[in-house]
Design a protein around this nucleic acid. Structure first.
Lengths: 196, 196
DNA sequence: CGGCTTTGATAACACTGTTGCGCTACACTG
DNA sequence: CAGTGTAGCGCAACAGTGTTATCAAAGCCG
């Protein structure tokens, strides 16, 4: 009986794409629903009927960010050597962050005030750690790594890469410092620190 | 000739204090100039005459955060053993962050959209790294640490603690994970990884 | 006391996210 | 083929934000 829907899946995708562009071009401050709607030639109502609210739209971006992370992580070929694999996972972590630098702050640093990821989004984020946790567990069991709770090692490795990537993306590092050159060296040192 | 000043140093301090309280109690979203001014029983004009803008007020908080960091860091007694000193500096880093958890995101993760630290604030932040850089340099020169550019090791250590602290403050870690217990173990592993 | 000048509170402006009103435009009836 | 019901959605209002311009208040000097 009603008029045909124009707030459909296609519009949903257009909104998400444009939201990502705005975020990447001008930062979180510039992501306004009015501008977003105007750019996609619809009204702000579209965001509310398709997502629910602005935080919910950001939630969709958050989930998308983790899906891309997951895809890149899954594509890594692991060797079975725990140290080498930690280095590989660490490298792909940074590559993923640099590939979508505007999504990273949303995923990890609450860049948009008022946004809190919902439960399933959090689960999606947690799932990304599975390969890391497995590598660490294998390393401990095979005696390559010290006999420490694998969760401690895994979180520690995650924190390490997250910290370096965060500092880099935030521009907190000295200008003359080249992360690219130092990163693998640092990853190796970190992994070696956990050797038995 | 004019009317007596009420936008004075005392009011400036009251505003900063209250801003910190609001930040800590309800997060960056709740830090509004109108509410801030009302709480201190003045007008929003006060912020503009004393600070210039909201970002400039945040800049003052940013600087205050680094001053507190500096004070805590300076109070650490170093032993001369590079590994032990890295652990001590790492511990005080986390203690500092947890002592003022609302300032940490401002200092390192652009929690307030539109805020960019000015030049002298950045310099203040950089100065905090001096003890870390000295410890690393001594460690490399005395042959305890591997022969790697000290800047690489220092940034790596900073990234490590920053990452763990960030994950903790953001609530990104699993609920059952106790950072307190794992932190020193991780610090030690990280420092040992840089041994010659 | 009148005028000068500095100071600061009020109110306007342009924006934000959000919500409810009410028009639009189709599918189904008679 | 008109009429109607109703889902869909654009528009406009509301409450809030940071910022700025206006203008009244308040002291000193001549």
């Amino acid at each position: 009986m009603p008029r045909p829907k124009t707030h459909d899946e296609a519009l949903r995708i257009k909104l998400l794409d444009r939201a990502g562009e705005l975020l990447s071009a001008e930062g979180p401050k510039a992501l306004s629903l009015r501008k977003l709607a105007a750019d996609v030639e619809t009204s702000t109502t579209a965001v509310y009927s398709l997502f629910g609210s602005k935080p919910d739209l950001v939630n969709a971006l958050y989930a998308e960010g983790f899906r891309r992370f997951q895809a890149r992580t899954d594509a890594v070929t692991l060797t079975g050597d725990p140290v080498e694999d930690l280095v590989r996972l660490g490298k792909v972590y940074r590559e993923s962050a640099l590939a979508d630098p505007h999504l990273y702050p949303i995923m990890f640093t609450k860049a948009i005030p008022g946004f809190e990821p919902n439960e399933e989004a959090v689960a999606l984020g947690r799932a990304n750690l599975a390969p890391l946790e497995k590598t660490v567990r294998d390393g401990v069991e095979s005696g390559v790594f010290a006999d420490v709770d694998p969760a401690v090692i895994a979180v520690s490795c995650w924190g390490f890469v997250h910290g370096l990537v965060s500092l880099e993306l935030n521009g907190n590092l000295p200008d003359e410092f080249s992360v690219g050159d130092a990163y693998e060296t640092a990853l190796r040192a970190n992994a070696n620190g956990w050797r038995r």
